[in-house]
């Protein structure tokens, strides 16, 4: 009788057999309570963080539980749309069209007024060599705000916008 083809004939004392090791489907439950308020804020172009009454730490995106105090933070605070790069790295990928290796910057953003960071993007084709810790950045909102995570498209570097900001400020006065 021919041996089934999965047998490794060169082995004398062990054999392998095919098997599967997976857990069918899984459902992940999460709380809407915090996220719903944050997304409602996005729809109005607002950045909402949540402050813990125990330790005054502000988290953005809002956390469900403060690990320090073991309480559920419940004080909502509006944060400015500016922040800074807490740290960053480059993530290489192959460009589908040119076949070249492109390095996309990946950054951790600390929203001004928040004690936490979250991971986000810089504008497309922004060189990761130009990223540095402490680099000031600003939320780039989507054209139409829908109350979704994607309302914040990416963060714009703002260091070279001094002129523009000055002009805006002067115009207001």
């Amino acid at each position: 009788m021919p041996l089934p083809d999965y047998e490794k004939k060169q082995y004398k004392v062990t054999r392998t057999m095919p098997g599967a090791w997976y857990l069918s489907n899984y459902k992940y439950k999460f709380n809407l309570s915090r996220m719903r308020i944050m997304l409602r804020g996005f729809k109005e172009g607002k950045i909402l963080g949540v402050k813990c009454r125990g330790c005054n730490h502000v988290s953005f995106p809002p956390k469900l539980i403060c690990g320090r105090c073991l309480v559920m933070p419940d004080q909502w605070v509006t944060l400015p749309d500016t922040g800074s790069v807490a740290t960053g790295s480059g993530s290489p990928r192959t460009d589908q069209e040119t076949g070249e290796i492109v390095i996309d910057p990946v950054i951790l953003v600390r929203q001004d007024g928040a004690d936490t960071v979250w991971i986000h993007n810089l504008p497309e084709n922004y060189s990761f060599h130009d990223v540095y810790i402490g680099m000031p950045i600003k939320v780039h909102w989507a054209e139409e705000l829908k109350g979704l995570w994607s309302d914040i498209e990416y963060y714009d570097p703002i260091e070279d916008m001094g002129d523009k900001i000055n002009k805006e400020e002067l115009a207001k006065k």
Binding site: K29, F30, N31, L64, I65, L70, V71, M72
Partner: peptide, 13 residues
Amino acid sequence: QMSPYECIFTAVR
């Protein structure tokens, strides 16, 4: 109707 974290938090707290 709780997330895993809320459920654990409720028991531990």
